[in-house]
Amino acid sequence: MWIDNDFPKILGAELYRPHPSYIVEMALEPNVVHDFTQQPGQTVQLDRYRFWGNPGTKEARERTADQTLGTSSARSINKDKVLVTLREYTGPADRDDPTQPSTFKVSMETLMTAQRLLLDTGNLNVFHQSIGSLTLLDDYRRWRDRVFTGELLKAEAQGKSSDKQGGYYYPGNKTRTVGGAPDISYAAGESAKFDVKTDLLEVVKALRKRNTPTFADGYYRCILDPTAMMQLRQDSDFREVARYPGMGQINPMQPFLAPNAQFYTGFGPAYGQAGFVAGQPVMPTGFLFEGVRWFESTNLPETSIPVTISSASITNTATPTALMMFFGPQSVGIGVGGNNAEILLNNNDDFSRFIIMIWRLWAGWEILQPDFVTIARTFVY
């Protein structure tokens, strides 16, 4: 006899398993605060830490014998409290209208077959696939991945990025004027494609000038669209570096295995993206170039912007762009309430003929450090 209570526990655990196709959260390493007592409508506190600011000179820090250094001049840690309101989110989405709630339905006959597979083989992957639950799990992962992307994109609201603040960056360091007909213009001889030797160096320089910290490995990170990757790989220097991770990493103790290195390091052919080891998915490692660790994602939104590109005979035309999101650590925070993501069953089972289920999450997101983020775009033409 099928025990309904066991099903959401077994399947719900899969919600937390990282997937190589949805890497934004992994690359971001967000600040996570989990408060089990909080419910939708209540808040969770995230902290945004800031630097002290101007370090001053040697003379400015010199003290005299009669100066007071005690509690009257004490300073607290410079941080802001960021309150995120928890909301309830569910899935899967309706196929025709993603704003409408929907459910996932499995017949009892299918479930009984799945149960036998689970008992016979003990293979949870076979069990999940036999009931079609990969659809439900993929919906949650793809949605959550896009949510983190949306938080990073909020940095564009600060305006043009510079040595002082985060924001947007367009090839040639152009300023965008929304509704300017066109928003951006490129004269004859100017390229509207992101250039490795000028644009990339400018973005990395600006991140460093505004004291954006690096991740623990000493590098910034970039998540970019495959079209942006294609354009960057047209540069010979970038291509030369990007091609090596796909060959795997040579074990110095076993150099004779170099031709098959990718099979034991987990690197795949797509520029350091996911590979497989012993049949299990491996999360992307990215590759390094000019102080940035690069990750490619196929789950980024696409936007068209009115632009004039004289060299390409484009005049005030909505032209597609491809995203490149550069960032440092602690850029985004997430507050989680209740039991975190879980699979829930509907009690209306039509006399145990089927079950209806959803995934549910109580959470709130917020960009914490917009100055640690540069949203770059390259035009596709």
Rank of each mutant, 00 (worst) to 15 (best):
R210P: 00
T135G: 12
D217V: 03
A192K: 04
Q158E: 08
L153T: 09
V203E: 03
G166V: 06
F215N: 07
A192G: 08
P245N: 12
H128L: 15
G150K: 11
L201A: 15
W143M: 03
Y244N: 10
R239V: 00
D163S: 15
L224K: 03
R146W: 13
P182N: 02
G132L: 06
V241H: 12
S236E: 14
A188C: 04
N211A: 14
D183R: 00
V126Q: 13
Q129F: 13
D163G: 15
L137M: 11
A187P: 05
G172A: 01
Q165G: 05
R141E: 04
S161K: 03
E240T: 14
R221P: 00
A157E: 13
S161T: 10
V196W: 06
I223K: 00
V178N: 13
D235I: 00
E156C: 08
S161Y: 08
L201G: 14
K193V: 14
E156W: 04
Q231W: 02
L137K: 09
G172T: 07
Y219H: 13
K174N: 04
E151M: 13
Y186V: 10
A188H: 11
S161I: 01
L200Y: 04
Y244A: 15
R243L: 14
L152I: 11
L136K: 05
R233I: 01
Y169Q: 06
M229T: 01
G189R: 07
S130V: 11
G159I: 02
P182G: 02
D195L: 01
P171T: 03
F194W: 08
E190K: 02
S133C: 12
V178R: 15
Q165F: 05
G218M: 10
Q129G: 08
S130M: 10
G179L: 07
G218K: 09
Y168W: 01
M229K: 10
R141V: 05
